[in-house]
Amino acid sequence: MIRFLSRKDLKQLLTMEEAIAAVEGAFREYGEGRCHVPVRLPVEVPELDGTLLLMPAFLGGSEILGTKLVSVYPRNPEKTLPSVIALYVLNDAQTGQPVAIMDGTYITNLRTGATSAVASKYMARKSSTVLGIFGAGAQAEFQLWALKTVFPLRKVLVYNRTPVKAEAFAREMEAKYEISVEPASRPEAVVRDSHILVTATTSTTPVFQGRDVTPGTHINAIGAFTPQMQEVDEAVVQEAKIVVDTYQGALAEAGDLLIPIQRGVISKEDIYAELSELVLGKKVGRTGDLEITLFKSVGFAIEDAATAKLAYDKALQQGVGTVIGDL
């Protein structure tokens, strides 16, 4: 029987703490060599400024099998639609039979926030209290939620190229999460005052100047996901200790790194580690309070698979969702 889980169902079922634990466990399993995950397949829709991505994954240790179908259309907000829309199909790993279909957009948003929290746990200063966010779209809230779960945040600064969106985000998040959230009028105001920075945009050019980054800052660059997109500049990647979700994905898709590599500013050997190496303790994420660290993520299918399986297991336990029968 196939169970359908809506966004409302997923919100009822999943907590950020559980998602962080599930994602961290998935990276541990990946680091142990027990996952089979191809680089995602992109289908470009250049006439309409869109991309369709296919993201399958198999986690052998926990027997999780599934696929995400996700579209990225940066101009969707002009039509009052999210820029990222996704569907997730979870299969029985023993038989291949589909067992669940769920809102992949919520899964994507939750696991992206959770992944940033996992990386930041190993790479940011434990005493970090100020979060700076570039972008005021759907992902910005999940980044705030996830990082507030792990760090003693007391203030959030947000910058958006459309100031009214940053102002609306600040009002809503301040009320919802009971934390000070301030819109910033200039990028440098966010960069200079933040302990942790998140770039969650679809920009093809850097959203701040690397020279403004202060010693000890940790950066989660999570918005750019193609070789042509770049949210952080060359000054950042030259200075920072760089960790990626996977070497394979970063060297295929991460414009934040590929563009400086192509220009000879850095080499692929300057990438310090994959996140799984930090999770397994093979490498140390932060070695001093003045170190600048950068987590570059393009998204990894194990994150979706682990979060979807968590939702499905809880749905079975609690009787949540709609059973729609067999194929």
Rank of each mutant, 00 (worst) to 15 (best):
R3C: 08
R3E: 07
F4H: 10
F4Y: 15
L5P: 04
S6H: 02
R7L: 00
L13W: 06
L13A: 03
T15M: 08
E24C: 05
P38E: 13
P42Q: 12
P46K: 10
P46C: 06
E47Y: 08
D49M: 11
L52K: 03
G61E: 15
K68W: 01
K68D: 07
L69I: 15
N76V: 11
E78N: 11
S83V: 02
A86C: 12
A93V: 11
Q94L: 15
Q94G: 14
Q97E: 14
D103R: 00
D103T: 06
T105R: 02
L110P: 04
S116K: 02
S127N: 14
V130G: 01
A136K: 07
A140H: 03
L144V: 08
W145K: 05
K148T: 08
K148L: 06
T149L: 08
V150Y: 04
V150M: 11
F151R: 05
Y159C: 09
K165W: 14
A170R: 00
R171T: 11
E172K: 15
E174H: 05
E174S: 15
A175P: 03
Y177S: 03
E178P: 04
I179F: 09
S180G: 06
S180N: 11
V181L: 11
E182F: 02
S185T: 12
P187L: 08
V190M: 06
V191Y: 00
V191D: 01
R192F: 05
L197D: 08
V198N: 00
T199I: 13
T199Y: 06
T202C: 05
T204G: 13
T205W: 10
V207D: 05
Q209D: 15
R211I: 10
V213H: 05
T214L: 14
I219K: 04
G223N: 07
F225N: 06
P227F: 13
M229S: 03
M229L: 03
M229T: 00
E231P: 08
V232C: 01
A235Q: 13
A235P: 01
V236Q: 08
V236Y: 01
K241I: 04
D245F: 00
D245H: 01
I261H: 03
V265R: 02
V265S: 04
I266F: 09
S267R: 14
E269L: 09
E269D: 14
L275I: 00
K282T: 06
G285E: 09
G288D: 13
G288Q: 05
G288P: 01
D289V: 07
E291I: 12
E291Y: 12
S297P: 01
I302Q: 00
I302S: 00
E303P: 10
A306Q: 08
G319Y: 13
G319D: 11
